[in-house]
Design a protein around this nucleic acid. Structure first.
Lengths: 347, 347
DNA sequence: AGAAATCATGTAGACCGTTACATCATCGAG
DNA sequence: CTCGATGATGTAACGGTCTACATGATTTCT
């Protein structure tokens, strides 16, 4: 069982001093080509690998960053992760994925794990608005980028989508198709994203000079397919059915679609349906789903790049927080098309 | 701008020595309750957090482990990650997710990143059979668990599914429904998993005393929805259509289903369809998809636990590699039901 | 009772593998 | 002979863990 081989061993093997080996890595041009080669050979011979652990301890920025999401089962989060992973990979970094599963306690636990590891920084899609873990991280001076939190906070970098506009787009689309009885199937009302989308719906009504009563809201505890099925069950129990349903999320919409289908209600003929996020699944559903697209991969990538810039700049003091707000986009598909003017099946 | 606070600061604040603070963490019962409390208070007051970096450098096992998958876009891999993440969380560890994107070079790059970081260990779903990165890791003595590689190697821990059985189950199911002209839409033929499923198909034929010609194979470069659409296009160009299609993967099956539908071919009436993996999406498809279920989350969790056990045992020398092989299971849904005996729509 | 052994607490100091910085040779040019 | 370059060396951090040892109080033995 051989001992771990360190820089000293390499130095001895190459017949130079410790510092020279370090220089070969960090200031190659300060070392004469001959010595450099000798050191290189020693490194290969011994199969030496630098210890990041020691480098970080010495003050170098870590090459690991983290992304904390609230639901790994949600394709939107997955897309965020993919985007971030891709950007990180380009910069030679690795990504730690933390699933808070919507539990603020888990989020906090992960936060302390990350702080203890002195990682490069974190992308965080906060679970609750209180932002306990965020303040914990900020206290530890860990670089942070907040993702998918629409509230305009000037005290941190963030990447988000204009959810008010998103809600407006969806609603306006349905209004334009003639719907005057729209149900907004919302997620937990405490989430700022949900509130924003709801405000967007109202704005659409105002723009169209229609009464606020044209949209009613139905809150759900979770934003999953199952929750969508439950919501649909509640819809079916209503005295008068809405003519259109706008869901806060494509998973909810998928659940609603399934349950309505089972009840023999046709989409879009009987009820028009619009989702949110435009996850990949949406286009391939039984009835291709109209949805408000949020560019998740792009968001992940932008957030990661923001963090990388932030932590690469030589002078971290003069850093100003940047807020990126992306525009959502309505993707019309069959689930909301007016009878007789079907959108072709091909996505 | 305050200086980072370390153990010495805590010690000074509590009026004890450095070692005592360390003992409060590592051997709490060696220090008197009074002192312990005093130290605790100092820690809280100063907002001190231990540096994992320093601990690892001193020889403590890291609290980060990694999982390397070949395609983050594949729900099967996501499920693996979810399982591993859950298990890791229970053990207080964090998971680093690395997407090799099917590129052995990336896999190797990640491998060295992981080694440099001296992480706890790695779960790896290898991209190519050569296993370059695996040998790199093994040379560095990093604990390893191979996931989803069916080849029986006694030189590493592994968690896999019996893919031969999986291929047999799917084929036998179709044979039992009377199909005698089955097409196996395979992935890259070099992948051992694909080879195993193919062998399974042959075994099913042998068991049923049918000629090997009852199953033909169609290779695809990738295993994505798009590849599935392309495969379907090729199928449509055949002189005589098969009566059943068995896809190496649910993504392929989804693509095939879409393309066949567009061509006006009904599933299962005209062609029966069976997928593999049983991703969540499969049950919710337009035509619920029959599939061979692989318990991905369980695999991820088991692999993670294997790794945790391995790295927690006091005596790492007397460790014997364990190979876990799980049984796949056929989940019959409408896409393969015989006309007239429909499985109910509800998944 | 006095010496010795036991015990609970703390302390001191040597690492772990790097990096940064100050120092020190060496040598040709002016 | 002094000056600058240039290249290599030595060493002090970084923030912990851990072993060995000092301290004093309490118990045990003779």
């Amino acid at each position: 069982m051989k001992q771990r081989v360190g820089m000293i061993d390499v130095a001895r093997e190459a017949g130079v001093s410790l510092g020279t080996v370090s220089n070969v890595y960090n200031q190659p041009d300060r070392v004469s080509p001959a010595t450099r080669l000798r050191v290189q050979r020693a490194i290969d011979r011994l199969g030496y690998v630098r210890s990041e652990t020691a480098r970080v301890l010495r003050g170098r920025p870590s090459r690991i960053m983290a992304i904390v999401v609230h639901d790994l089962a949600n394709p939107f989060c997955i897309a965020l992760v993919q985007g971030a992973e891709q950007a990180a990979r380009r910069a030679g970094l690795g990504i730690m994925v933390c699933n808070s599963a919507g539990d603020p306690a888990e989020e906090t636990r992960y936060a302390s794990l990350l702080i203890e590891h002195r990682i490069r920084g974190a992308l965080i899609a906060p679970t609750d608005s209180s932002g306990q873990s965020i303040t914990a991280m900020r206290r530890s001076e860990m670089p942070l980028v907040v993702v998918d939190d629409s509230r305009p906070g000037r005290d941190a970098c963030s990447v988000a989508v204009d959810d008010v506009l998103g809600g407006e787009l969806a609603t306006a689309h349905l209004l334009a198709a003639g719907h005057r009885s729209i149900l907004f199937v919302a997620g937990p009302a405490r989430l700022p994203q949900i509130q924003a989308r709801s405000r967007g719906a109202l704005r659409a009504l105002a723009r169209a000079r229609l009464p606020a009563s044209a949209v009613t809201q139905l809150d759900c505890e979770k934003m999953t397919v199952t929750a969508g099925r439950d919501a649909a069950a509640r819809i079916l129990g209503m005295r008068t059915l809405p003519t259109a349903v706008f869901c806060a999320n494509d998973l909810l919409a998928t659940g609603v679609l399934q349950r309505l289908f089972e009840a023999g209600i046709r989409v879009p003929e009987d009820i028009a349906l619009v989702g949110y996020d435009d996850i990949e699944h949406a286009a391939a559903a039984a009835v291709p789903l109209t949805s408000v697209r949020r560019p998740a991969r792009l968001m992940g990538a932008q957030a990661a790049n923001l963090l990388i810039d932030k932590t690469s700049s030589a002078s971290p003091v003069e850093h100003t927080h940047r807020q990126v707000v992306l525009r959502p986009e309505l993707v019309a598909r069959r689930s909301s098309s007016r009878p007789g003017m079907h959108v072709p099946a091909r996505p």
